[in-house]
Each structure stands twice: as structure tokens, then as C-alpha cells.
Amino acid sequence: MASTDGDRPESKLAAEIEVEAYRRLFPLPYYDRHLVESVRPDGRALGQARETTIAVGPVSSANGSALVKLGDTTMLAAIKLEVMTPSTKSPDEGSLAVDFYMPPICSPSIRPGRPADTAPVIAKQLSDAISSSGMINLKELSLVSGKAAWMAYLDIYCLNADGSLFDAALLSATAAFSHLQIPLVSLNDSGRVITISEEQKGKSVSEPLNKEIRKLAIKNTPFSLTCILHDKHILADPTSEEESVMDTHVTVVLDSKGRLVSSYKAGGSVLLSRSMIKNCMEIAKQRMEELGEILKESLSAMEID
């Protein structure tokens, strides 16, 4: 490596340090100069999302679970089923509780005891997107009409926060629901629902409530894409650095048929023009198809195992 022109590597190093310093000192001009060339600092095109992987069933103590990696953003979703008494208004419907957690391991800015401000916001958006897309038919969670129904606790943990948290969380939620298996249960003498274990299966004490371990029928899966608007540029799937430098974020949620479920734009310095909205939708639609493929692949990979 010790080359003949000895001063070369040194000057290269100096240039590198300058770029890094420039990035930290003047983040906005740094991004502007990239965006003019239609490229982002991590080498992506403007409308390109990061590499996405889904692993289903990593948590054995849950009824359904999924781990999603969106670039460096990592989400772990798990669903636990418990039994509840359905409300008198809807006696043959189960229920769903969504929660989103940002434990202190996920980001240097979160300290224990002080929950992140964004966590409850994302939790609300998630539960809205899941309920309004009609992905889950709550009637399927019923056990005995008016007496017992499943309560599905969906808990999503952000293990590493690097931007586009809502997109990753929603994807992990849909993957966990696709993986969810409803266990075999029966009623005991005191009217409580109990699980039937493997060894009890043959010499069943009481009639099982459901014939076999089953999965939920999932339709109209919602997929989302967050974009950053900056001048005339639309940056899909931003990292946390991009999110902190540029402040106008638009999230579009589409279902698998391409219908708009919801769309958020919480303030920001850039105002949306109609053509911008259209462009965002267009990118979101492409992304929706991409994510649908990835989800299908990961689920079929699981079935082979």
C-alpha cells in the first residue's frame, strides 16, 4: 500500500474529514448538493426505499410475531391472545389493542423513565390504520357469543430507530397478524376458557370450541410509505438523519387493492401542491406492490420450514 506518491492517501483522508465535518456543520447545504444530483448521501435514488426483510415467528412465547428490518430500522411485533367478555354492544366480536414502545435501547435520545413523545402518536396511527383498513374481521375473534372472545394484544417494540418508524411498525404488524395462530381452547366447568395441550387432544375432557388451530383471514393489508418533501424533491423512506434535517413528512397508507386508507402530513415548512400529492401517491403505490411481494415471500418461506 505504501505507494510511490506518499502524500496521496493523506490528502484523501483530509478530504474525507472535511466531508464529514461539512455534513455535521451544514447538514442542509450538504443534502441540497446531493439532491441537485438526484442522489442521496447513502447512494439511494430519491424515490428508492431501503432494503427490507421480514422474519416471521421469532418470539416463541407469543401467538404471532414478526421482525422487520427496514434499512437499519428494526421492529419486533408480537401478538398475544387473551380471553375477554365481549361488550353487550357487539357480543360476537373480539377486540384489538395496539401499543407501540420505544425502549431506551433503540436510540441515544431516549432515556429510561421518560417515554418518547412520538411513541403514543405512532401507536394511535397504527391502530387507526389497522382498524380503518378492515384488515382484521373482529367477528373471527369471537369464541362464545356474548360470553367469551379473543382480545388480541399487539405490542410493537422498536429495537433500532433509524427513520420511517411508522412504515416499519405497520409492516411488522401485518406480518405478525399473518403469522398469528389461534390456539385450541375449550370451556371448563366454571365457564373459563382453557387451552388444550397436545397430550390432552385425544382424550378430550370437553368439546373444543374450535376444530383446529387456525389463522385469521387477512384481506386489504395496509402498506405505508413515508416521504420527505424538500423544495421540489420527494425523498421516500427517510433515515433518521434525513428526518431531522428536513421537517416536512408525508405518510401515505394504501391497502393491497391500492385504495387510500389514510394520509398524514403534520405541518412542516413545505406546503403540498396537488401534483406533489399525486407523486407521493404514485411512489407509495409502487412501494405497496414491492412490500406485498416481500411479505408474500417471507410467509411462503415460513410455510416450507
Binding site: E82, V83, M84, T85, S87, T88, V185, R192, I194, T195
Partner: peptide, 16 residues
């Protein structure tokens, strides 16, 4: 019974 937070229980408790 309907008021307040919903009471739920895990069906595998007895088994365990």
C-alpha cells in the same frame, strides 16, 4: 362489569 378497563386472562394459565 362493562365499565373500566377490560378484564382479560390467558387461557393457558390453568394448564401451566
Amino acid at each position: 362489569m362493562a365499565s373500566g378497563p377490560l378484564e382479560t386472562y390467558s387461557p393457558s394459565q390453568t394448564l401451566e
